[in-house]
Nucleic acid binder design. Structure first.
Lengths: 197, 197
DNA sequence: GCCAAAAATTAACAAAAGATAATAAAACTA
DNA sequence: TAGTTTTATTATCTTTTGTTAATTTTTGGC
């Protein structure tokens, strides 16, 4: 059972949502737990599912032409997992979504979510809020990739996600920043040395 | 005066919009023309204006710490200009928006746009459509920056924006791709040579 | 068409990044 | 805890990029 305190925390992302509306959503959502290394979404999936991470950490990755895994995003608790391929690009998912930690989510078919929102106009504001958050994150990331050097990008990442570095291997973070693990290791060394002097 | 054919073309971006609704919007929008090098938005602006480019080309750029202009985006006709700083990040614009060609836009205060949409529920679908387009573009760009090398990124850019290369200096495109103009020149040379062999 | 300004290319060098492999450190498991 | 596996670091070498400046090419205005 979920109490009000938890509810408020869960809906941290939805600044404007009321408790009643949150209940409406949660009541219709499936609550699912994933063990470490379980897949939330497989490559090729066409299912239009939306996840909300209550607890845990999800890694979005694809397999490149050399057969290597490339981590594209690290998505922690209080964030949404939306599959852009299915939701926006109307194509099968090119990405896997894997739980890196024991992970608890609420999940719902997008169609169902949309019909619930239609039936509860107050939720519309929340949908807008969630979409804006996703857009903000994407914009912010474009900015850091275009305007910052890899080293600056890593420093900013540490500021923006201070806990992430303790939760996942560096090689995942390297991929997210668009560089190789070897290069990240060198950047870390460089920063350490500059700091000493 | 604007005829129906023009209207359909203008609203290319709004797949689902009806002619009546388009008129509602256009009737309330200001139609503005910019000469080459005019600024649509200045750095520091707090105005929450939305632009729709009917014709022309807009360059979004900022000034970096060395005082150099860095082009962040190139926005051609049939696209929206939204100032993410004001609209999403609630801060003064860090960017300039400059017309690179004689440019005609429709423009409206975001508040006004929102109230018109509230009063015309059919427009809601169009708002969603426009927002999704912006999100798609941002996501696509993140992907190309994270997963592709600069050379691959340039090749993809040529495919996605085949006309852009004839409309703007290469140095702007280099910035958009997150590389220096010198580096882009070398990439172009490399591609030309590989193609020959 | 000529001239001035802007842009693109090239050169030369330094710095950083990619690739691959070897080694060291850490994390996981039996 | 010992042993295995994974991850991080380091080394070596190649490639690419950044930086700065010189040179060539292109563009735009008169």
């Amino acid at each position: 059972m979920i109490n009000l305190e938890q509810l408020r925390k869960i809906y941290k992302f939805g600044r404007d949502i009321g408790v009643k509306d949150a209940y409406t959503l949660i009541a219709s959502a499936k609550s699912v737990s994933f063990k470490k290394r379980d897949m939330l979404i497989e490559e090729g999936s066409q299912k239009n599912q939306i996840f909300y991470i209550r607890k845990g950490l999800v890694r979005q990755f694809c397999i490149n032409d050399k057969g290597e895994e490339v981590t594209f995003a690290l998505i922690p608790e209080y964030h949404m997992v939306v599959n852009a391929d299915v939701l926006l690009f109307e194509q099968p998912s090119r990405f896997y979504y894997e739980a890196l930690e024991p992970t608890k989510v609420f999940t719902m078919e997008n169609e169902k979510l949309q019909s619930i929102i239609s039936a509860n106009p107050r939720l519309e504001a929340n949908r807008k809020f969630a979409l804006r958050k996703i857009l903000k994150d994407a914009m912010y990331r474009v900015e850091s990739l275009v305007l910052l050097s890899p080293e600056e990008r890593y420093k900013q990442y540490l500021i923006d996600h201070p806990d992430m570095v303790n939760r996942v291997p560096d090689k995942y973070i390297a991929n997210v920043l668009g560089i190789t693990p070897v290069s990240l290791s060198r950047i870390r060394k460089r920063i350490k040395n500059h700091h000493k002097s």
